[in-house]
Design a protein around this nucleic acid. Structure first.
Lengths: 142, 142
DNA sequence: TATTGTTATACTCTATAACTATA
DNA sequence: TATAGTTATAGAGTATAACAATA
């Protein structure tokens, strides 16, 4: 492998992130899947189907995931006002606290990784990722 | 969230990679865990303990993972010449072909993501990641 | 008819603890 | 004693298919 290339860079960065994420979840007594779910729900309540799509899992898989999180007191189910079939998933106070602590931990770890970069390099990195994300959204839309 | 920052950039990129990886694995009839294992083994045979460390799972978990991959004809176990306790995991021809096809697929998808960047930006991104990786290795060493 | 969520079922993935064979 | 790998066990995560309730 003479020239790593952008794909290998992304893969390597992802492996690091995966590891950071897994260890942080363990520190906060969360499974990686629950940690991911909490981070999404931190932005606000979601319906089951909506949350399943955001997590990229089947709705049937989400039922079990939500069951276990509910049993651990991280979230609650409630009825929707407008659609009697729908269920609204909302974080409990404990769930919000866990989401916040976990996110703070992970963010700190990941930000620390970029300490080796100059301010200029760090900005360039962030801009590059923003462009990639924007390009991907266009892809999905078009 | 007024200023995304480097942590959010890394998290976003990781989410994209996760999705690309999962869909590619599905296309190649591999589980994500098997795909990951094949990519590591593509570099050469490994002992169970060694492979478990590289995958960041317990050796007991690797036994089942290797069992299923062996059953699917992706790898073989063989005895080590120097240590009669050790087992050497080697890809079969089918395993090498699957690893190669999967890696090619994922690399293509990820490289395409960076098409929205200029050559200069892409180089800056790769250099940044290389620096982050180097910093992390120093961390682990020191 | 289509959609929302659950249940039923069957795997895969994972960790912990206990075990064996070897070093 | 320590290490390499397996087995036993238990639980989490996931998908597919079938279902009830509601739209």
């Amino acid at each position: 492998m003479p020239d790593p290339g952008p794909a290998d860079a992304i893969i390597a960065l992802s492996a690091i992130t995966r590891s950071v994420f897994a260890r942080a979840a363990e520190r906060h007594s969360l499974t990686p899947a629950h940690a991911r779910m909490l981070c999404i729900l931190a932005a606000g309540p979601r319906r089951m189907t909506e949350l399943a799509a955001l997590m990229d899992v089947e709705k049937a898989a989400l039922t079990g995931l939500a069951d276990r999180a509910e049993r651990r007191g991280l979230l609650t189910r409630s009825a929707s006002d407008t659609d009697r079939r729908a269920v609204l998933i909302t974080l409990t106070q404990a769930g919000r606290a866990a989401a916040s602590a976990f996110h703070h931990d992970v963010s700190g770890q990941l930000t620390a990784l970029t300490d080796v970069l100059s301010d200029q390099e760090r900005d360039a990195f962030c801009r590059g990722v923003a462009r990639i994300r924007a390009g991907r959204r266009d892809d999905a839309a078009g």
